[in-house]
Amino acid sequence: MKNRKIVITGGPGTGKSSIVHQLEAKGEKCLHEISRQVTLEAKKDGIDQLFLEKPLLFSEKLLEGRLNQFEEASQYESDHIFIDRGLPDVVAYMDYFNTAYPPIFHRTCEENRYDLIFILPPWKEIYTSDNERYETFEEALKISSYLYSTYRRYGYDPIEVPKLSVEDRTNFILNKIQK
């Protein structure tokens, strides 16, 4: 199967970026999370925390960026490509924050399907916050439950990645895609 689009998702601070970097180190093609890029662009425009100040605009920009990534992934000549977060993540976060959004969000998720979803469970021992990750661990737990339910609502069966070292988690993912 060509161009399988494989999402790595999970709540904040679950190790997604570390795994994506490890996948790249092993020669895998990966597309990175774009939320920090959206936040930094907004800061250049004078909006300190776009998500907090204008959550719908932030989510629209995320949806657009993730749709662009989805389309970009189709253009690679490879068996698979890993994507740090998928389109349903946007809906999960909007639902978590109880923020209304237009029907195009659902249509975009329904019309653009991924091949596999790997989800990283909350893990208190590795959780840290920073300037772009402002959620507490308790909030990260809730966000994680929204991610699980949102992906299932769109017909996915997310594969939970066990709490292991970055290397072992990466190998778990690579072994699963070979099956």
Results as ranks from 00 to 15, higher is better:
Asn3Phe: 06
Ile6Gln: 00
Val7Tyr: 01
Ile8His: 05
Gly10Met: 02
Gly13Cys: 02
Thr14Arg: 00
Gly15Met: 05
Lys16Ala: 04
Lys16Ile: 02
Ser18Asp: 07
Ser18Trp: 08
Leu23Ile: 06
Glu24Thr: 10
Glu24Ser: 13
Ala25Glu: 15
Lys26Ile: 09
Glu28His: 09
Ser35Ile: 13
Arg36Leu: 10
Gln37Arg: 14
Gln37Leu: 14
Thr39Asn: 13
Thr39Trp: 14
Glu41Thr: 11
Lys44Asn: 13
Gly46Trp: 14
Gly46Ser: 13
Asp48Cys: 12
Gln49Thr: 11
Phe51Asp: 12
Lys54Arg: 13
Pro55Glu: 03
Pro55Asn: 04
Leu56Ile: 03
Leu56Thr: 05
Leu56Phe: 04
Leu56Ser: 03
Lys61His: 08
Lys61Tyr: 09
Glu64Ile: 05
Glu71Gln: 13
Glu71Ile: 12
Glu77Thr: 06
Phe82Leu: 06
Asp84Phe: 00
Arg85Val: 04
Pro88Ile: 11
Val90Ile: 11
Val90Thr: 14
Val91Trp: 00
Asn98Asp: 09
Tyr101Lys: 08
Pro102Phe: 10
Phe105Met: 02
Leu120Pro: 01
Leu120Arg: 03
Ile126Ala: 06
Tyr127Ser: 07
Asn131Tyr: 11
Glu132Tyr: 15
Arg133His: 08
Tyr134Phe: 10
Thr136Ala: 07
Ala140His: 01
Leu141Pro: 00
Lys142Arg: 13
Glu160Leu: 11
Ser165Ala: 10
Ser165Tyr: 09
Val166Gln: 04
Glu167Lys: 14
Arg169Val: 09
Arg169Trp: 08
Thr170Glu: 01
Asn171Trp: 09
Asn171Ala: 11
Ile173Thr: 00
Asn175Ser: 08
Ile177Cys: 06
Ile177Tyr: 05
Lys179Leu: 09
